[in-house]
Design a protein around this nucleic acid. Sequence first.
DNA 1: GCTTGACTTAGACAATGTCTATTGTAGGGT
DNA 2: ACCCTACAATAGACATTGTCTAAGTCAAGC
Lengths: 138, 138
Amino acid sequence: MSDLLERLRGRGWRMTAQRRVVAEVLDGDHVHLTADEVHARAVVKLPEISRATVYNTLGELVSLGEVLEVATDKRAKRYDPNAHRPHHHLVCARCGAIRDVHPDGNPLADLPDSERFGFTVSDVEVTYRGVCPNCAAA
Amino acid sequence: MSDLLERLRGRGWRMTAQRRVVAEVLDGDHVHLTADEVHARAVVKLPEISRATVYNTLGELVSLGEVLEVATDKRAKRYDPNAHRPHHHLVCARCGAIRDVHPDGNPLADLPDSERFGFTVSDVEVTYRGVCPNCAAA
DNA sequence: GCTTGACTTAGACAATGTCTATTGTAGGGT
DNA sequence: ACCCTACAATAGACATTGTCTAAGTCAAGC
């Protein structure tokens, strides 16, 4: 993750404690936090960080292409730091747990011209839904 | 759509003017309205209908499997009356227009066991993104 | 160590969705 | 045809998520 900070500094990002903390919170695999969850964790490390800063920083990271916004639940946006390897998501319908997955095949190729309605299609987002082992056991 | 009302009556749904109006508003192809859009259109036909009723009715229709919730934009839930033929969505990144599409293949089959993390996977939701002909011309 | 403009802050505001207490009414029973 | 009663609708408060603004703060270059 420190290479992320380096990259951003190189792009003229001013380095502040707040931004460092947000980046640290997002570090890791299978991380898909909502903005408020990011804020809650950031506050632990830096008590005076404000909600607006977290929202701003997340928005900037998304613009810079370092973090993805995902809409796996219909309530709040989630932020996925795994922006550099294309992947999709598997969501537990009960507890909301999210895993990154890498399906075979290319769904983009599965959309025939006749179903494109003249659109220039550039991207596809796949969300699998099911029940995770924990919830199935309960 | 009147067959929808019949079906629901058969399932013990009490038929009210409000529910009829919400069902009418949702009728049609490629319809993907937000709750507030449904409310706005319902008010035209039945001025005294309340927001809460629209939300309740939409929620019931979803529970009954007659309408789908889709999360194509990250702002508000959208409601899709085309619940009986499986399909996916194609969204314009500029204007937000949504079309129902029917890709080839079955994305569920593309998720290998090794990528299922022990989940029981039951459903998959695919959102294609691109630019529609109107926006491309502008 | 200054200066400056970008960054952060608190809190107001906006949009979307949920809940509650009260009033109204669909549909069955007589 | 009329009444009951349980279910539905209403207005509006409340909750959650996200955006904006004005004022204060600070990182980084000089």
